[in-house]
Design a binder for these strands. Structure first.
Length: 623
RNA sequence: GCAUCCGUAGCUCAGUUGGAUAGAGUGUCAGUUUCCGAAACUGAAGGUCACAGGUUCGAUCCCUGUCGGGUGCACCA
């Protein structure tokens, strides 16, 4: 069993072969651009006709004559200058989506084919400071992509390449020790930003302090040989890092980001490998010394511009740079972790650096022909004037503040909508909505363009937003709940006997005692005994969209574009709403159709929930 | 200066190796609740795809140029 688009492609390729059309001619099978053009369309015939100097409509007709319709296709039509429109057979489509379920990941497993190892570098905050809004996109986009790859059956290795190295840390440790000595140090370092600011002030105003700070950096680098002071400085460094990582983890927990301690691969991890990076480059005669710095220069055309800027791997004072670390990281990710695709979810402004890095990495021999290093670039987050997102005074906005603000606003809205709810339910919903809104607003836009952040727009609760998708889901769940009679307060339900023939199950996902998180599911027996029947147009449309889930995931993963998945889920929800408005379920004309529609609704809910889950967005059962 | 990304409806955005009459949402206006959740659905209006050439059956997409904007370019990360 394969995706419908793949099956159609094979069918048409066979027809092409019978007409002696070269194997490398593209079929160009795509989803129909408009409903009146059917379900799929073939765009390739016109190009081929031109190449072979044939009349495109005649060729299209010949192709159609050679395609075996049954059982997938109900009708083929020639349209315009030589398009072929494909209308799928209702029975076939119905059977196809009947086979979509959790076990085969709604068809996504079909794409597994070759399992790849995907290394994803994302989030990667600097531990010297608290996470700020600039870290949001990398964190959210990277986490989504990791989930998608995993869901499709690939092996995913997350790499949180946190910044725990560099001159700032000498300064921070010096300040930390100073505070400990005068007894004013707080061990949790509750406000890292403030701590950094004060350390910087000390660094700038006091030359002795600055010298100490610089000395600590050197000590840190060689601490194993620096005796007890080295050990002391090293230990403070470790404890500072841990404090900072706790801040990060707090954010990850709030945002439901899957990163854990296991995924942390700090810059310092590569320290011992840096000498060797230089050796490798030198052995390959790639290094030139310029102004005392070790550089790699590029040949004309190698970078398609910007070749005059060298890639510096060692400063004149002997120190290494992030460019050196990044090379060591390539070696590790490709040769230790065995990554087939190595993704860097990093700001687009670092595009030039990655362009250079990947070329040098290849020259150094760290990559193979089969490895793909990819800069998954994203644009800058701006305010509503299109300017970088800053506080009124021009400072950086802490990520935690942005999250809290979104929750506060969501709470207000929930209170207006559901004044009769209890406090804990409202709070729970507000959290899910706020986090979902933040993530969806980001993920639903093409990651490569700059993105205007607006609380008002993302919390608008209508249109292409997380709340709309969540609403579609709750509407279906509400419908399914109606099909059950409550037997006890929360956990077990019976089907109403005249509706469904078998037992259903309901269970609680979370520990909180609330119907918000009580999910109703239809059990396997019902699936087995119910046949989907597509009679109405809106049912056909919905079914087609359900069938295309795995194609959507495939494209999302291929291009690393989460907005493909968002667009898909939005369209699915719209299709469902239209179906829901035009086809009565509870009052369907027959039991057969009623049960079929219940299954359609159920399947829709499950795919919305799964899709949102891949975006990192939770669902609720009521809202 | 070189490089790079962008310019699509009032606003926010889609547009999958070049495909049919360029699509959504929002906002505006007009409809739809004795019926499964109106946080919904239906319809109308809204466009010189920045501009000018070129390539071809066909260009928002590819090429050239112009205008306007963002970003990056030697020892920070």
């Amino acid at each position: 069993m394969q995706t419908i688009s793949k099956i159609l492609e094979i069918k048409f390729r066979r027809a092409f072969n019978q007409l002696d059309i070269p194997e490398d001619s593209p079929i160009l099978l795509v989803e129909a651009s408009k409903p009146e053009f059917g379900d799929f369309q073939i765009n390739g015939v016109m190009g081929i006709a031109k190449k072979l100097k044939l009349n495109p409509r005649d060729l299209a007709q010949k192709v159609i004559d050679n395609v075996e319709l049954s059982p997938e296709i109900s009708k083929l039509e020639i349209a315009g200058p030589g398009f072929i429109n494909i209308i799928l057979d209702d029975n076939y489509l119905a059977t196809y989506i009947s086979n979509l379920n959790h076990e085969n990941r709604f068809g996504a497993q079909l794409q597994m084919g070759k399992t790849k190892t995907v290394v994803i570098d994302y989030s990667s905050p600097n531990l010297a400071k608290e996470m700020h809004v600039g870290h949001l996109r990398s964190t959210v986009i990277g986490d989504c992509l990791a989930s998608v790859f995993e869901y499709m059956g690939h092996k995913v290795i997350r790499q949180n390449h946190v910044g725990d190295w560099g001159t700032q840390f000498g300064m921070l440790i010096a300040y930390m020790i100073e505070r400990i000595d005068d007894g004013t140090f707080e061990h949790d370092i509750s406000d890292l930003e403030e701590f950094y600011r004060k350390a910087k002030v000390r660094f700038d105003e006091d030359a002795t302090f600055a010298d100490t700070a610089r000395r600590y950096v050197v000590i840190l680098q060689n601490w194993k040989n620096e005796g007890t002071e080295g050990e002391k400085v090293h230990n403070y460094w470790v404890s500072f890092k841990n404090a900072s990582l706790e801040h990060c983890q707090e954010i990850y927990n709030k945002l439901k980001i899957k990163l854990t301690h296991e995924d942390i691969a700090p810059e310092s991890m590569y320290n011992d490998a840096l000498d060797n990076v230089i050796n490798v480059l030198e052995n390959k005669h790639l290094i030139n010394v310029s102004n005392g710095a070790k550089c790699i220069f590029f040949a004309d055309g190698e970078l398609s511009g910007g070749e005059t800027t060298p890639y510096i791997v060692q400063k004149q004072d002997g120190g290494y740079l992030y460019s050196t670390t990044d090379l060591a990281a390539i070696d590790y990710r490709v040769n230790q972790l065995k990554g087939d695709r190595v993704l860097y979810v990093v700001d687009a402004r670092q595009g030039f650096h990655f362009k250079q890095l990947f070329i040098v990495g290849e020259k150094a021999g760290y990559t193979t022909k089969d490895t793909s290093l990819e800069h998954v670039a994203f644009g800058t987050m701006t305010n509503e004037d299109g300017k970088p997102f800053k506080t009124r005074t021009g400072g950086t906005v802490k990520l935690i503040e942005l999250i809290n603000e979104a929750v506060i606003r969501a709470k207000k809205i929930v209170l207006e909508r559901n004044p009769d709810w209890n406090e804990s339910d409202r709070e729970y919903l507000a959290n899910v909505l706020a986090i979902g809104a933040i993530k969806y607003a980001d993920l639903s836009k093409n990651r490569e363009s700059d993105y205007i952040f607006s609380f008002d727009k993302m919390l608008a609760f209508n249109g292409n937003t997380a709340p709309y998708l969540m609403y579609a889901y709750t509407r279906i769940q509400s419908l399914l709940r109606k099909l059950y009679l409550a037997r006890s307060s929360f956990d077990v339900f019976d089907f109403a006997p005249d509706v469904l023939p078998v037992h259903g199950v309901a269970y609680q996902k979370h520990q909180i005692s609330s119907s918000l998180s009580m999910e109703v599911r239809i059990d396997e027996e019902f699936f087995k005994q119910t046949k989907i029947k597509l009679t109405e147009k809106s049912e056909h449309k919905l079914a087609l969209q359900l069938a295309n889930f795995s194609d959507c995931l495939y494209m999302t993963a291929k291009e690393c574009y989460p907005h493909y998945l968002c667009q898909y889920l939005y369209n699915l929800s719209v299709n469902f709403m239209q179906f829901y408005e035009s086809c009565s379920i509870l009052r369907a004309e027959s039991m057969e159709i009623k049960n079929s529609r219940i299954l359609l609704a159920h399947l829709t809910a499950q795919i919305i929930k799964t899709g949102l889950g891949l975006l990192g967005i939770e669902t609720v059962e009521r809202m």
